[in-house]
Every structure is written in C-alpha cells, then in structure tokens.
Amino acid sequence: MTRSQHDAEPARGAAAPEPPGPDSPAPKAPVEKIPVPKRPVLRPAVPIYDSAARPHPLVEELQELVRYRDLVLQWSRRNIQLRYKRSVLGVLWTLLEPLMLMTILALVFSNAFGDLIPDFPIYLLSGLILFDFFSRSTLQIVEEIIASQSLAERIHVPRSAFATAAIVTYLVNWLIAHLPLLGLVLFFDRPLSWAIVTILPGMVLTAMFALGIGLVVATIGAFFVDIRLTYQVLLTGWFYATPIIYSLSIVPESRHRIFALNPLLHLCELVRSPIYDGVVAAPVHWWVSLAIGFTTLAVGWAVFTHWRNAFDYRS
C-alpha cells in the first residue's frame, strides 16, 4: 500500500478536487495546540463500488472476509483478552477447566467404561476438548452474529468475520488445552510419537465443520431467537452420541454403521488416535472428515450468505 504523507503546509487553499488529490490539513489555529496533524491519504487507488458489478453474495462475502482479515484477528484477540480479563486465574483457567471436567467424568464413568479403556483419562480428555471446541465455537458464532446485528445494519462489514473470529478464538483455546493432555500422556507414561502432528490438520477439519454448522444455526437464529435453546439440547444429545466417554467397542457391531454417520466420530478419531494410540488415524476417518469438512463449510457458507442477507430486507 502506497501512502504519501504530507506535513501541514501553512498555506494551501482549496485542494485539487480530483479524488486522488493529497490530503492537506489546512491551518486551524486557535483550537489546535499541535500544528502538524499527519493525516495520510488512504488510497492505493480510488476504490470503486458498483452495485451492478457486485459479485454473487457468496463470492462477495468471501472477498470481503479476506479484505477484513485483520478484523478477524483483532476480534479473536479481543475474545481471548476478555476471557482472561474476566477471570482471576486467566490462562491457567484454560488449562484447568478441561482437566476438572475430565476428572469428574473420569470418576463417574471409570467404573462403567474405564476398565475397557486403559488410561481412560487420556482417552476422555482428548475427546472432551474436541467437543468443548465444537460446542463453544458454534454457540459463540450464533451469539456473535446476533450481537453484530445492529453494527452490520449501520456499517459495511462482513458478518462472516465475526463467525470466523469465534472459530479462531476457540482453536487457540483448544490448542492450549492440549498442554494438560500432553501432561497426562507423560504422567501415564504413554509413548509419544511423531503422529501427534497430525492432530493439527484434524483440528483444521473440525474447525471447518464447526464453522459450517455454526453459520447454518446462526442463519436460522436470525429468524428465530429460540434456536439457541433447541441447538443446546441437540448438542447434549450429540455429545452422548459421540464416543467420548465410552468407546465404540461397547456398542453392538450391528450399530456401528449408524454411529459412523456422526461426523464428530470421525473427526474425534483424527485428533485422538495420535495422542492416545500414538498412530495416525485410519484413512477412512481422514477421507470422511475431509469430505465432511469441506462440504459442511460450503453448505454453511451458501446458506449464510443467501438467507442471512435476505433477513436484512425484512423489517
């Protein structure tokens, strides 16, 4: 970006009327204490907005998201900052929270399923932090889209930036939550292998899936405020339908095909196998996750850009 800065020149009359003319703060003596307000011209080229040349909302939203990428980062930063400013324990809380939840669940369920799963806490925590990411990020998307409503009605800003920021926020959170998980691995003396690097692409695919789902729920949420409660109930059911506190081995073989319809089962394998079994997840889980990650995101994006925009024209 090229920018030219001009110090205030004492005498400049009416500046050139053509748009790319340099900006000149004219002298305004009595009120201004400091005589040189440097105000640069923000124009690499004159941006032209032509409604007739506007691309399809689906494409336009994507272009705008890329253009507003700094907003995504800044907004994620804000979410993380707020989280830590509000709690006394700060970052420590992010480490402790999943550990505490895991401990409770481990105590409750170790009698039921623990015997079938060696080193149950590792297995459990790995799945828990995935589901925690999924439920929190999708709910946050719904919240953000509702909260940004009045803002987006007044200034031009891609709403998807807020949804993406929610995902980034909880991805960071999820990454930090891997520290106590690694601690458990060391504590139980489980082998660590290079396979754990494959957790990262697994997380990315989960994030894509979560963004897609979040956008769909947020779109419905624009029309009906009660969707959040409905979705929360759905999430609870989803948690129990996913092998997180149990393993698929306790489920009758004949039902495995039904369980395999759950996208989170496959995504969960991607991030759990490397840390729990020390191996990369089976290819089938990768293929299913890839297909589901991309499809869900594409569908969510299309639904959001089409129907969410349509909502603005209701009054």
Binding site: P19, R43, Y49, S51, A52, K85, I155, N309, D312
Partner: peptide, 29 residues
C-alpha cells in the same frame, strides 16, 4: 450496507459513515 433491489449505485472513493462512532467498543478493554 444494503444492495438495491433495482437500479444501480456507483460510488467512486471511500465512504466514511459518521453514524456509528465507537463501533464495537468494549467497556472492559
């Protein structure tokens, strides 16, 4: 913020709406 249902709008340059001063301000920051 809105797309016209019909017709065409062309804007040459950057708009600054002074409608939303302090948009997105958060009190804790």
């Amino acid at each position: 913020v809105l797309r016209p249902t019909e017709g065409r709008v062309v804007v040459r340059g950057r708009t600054a709406p002074l409608l939303e001063l302090g948009a997105g301000f958060h009190f804790d920051l």
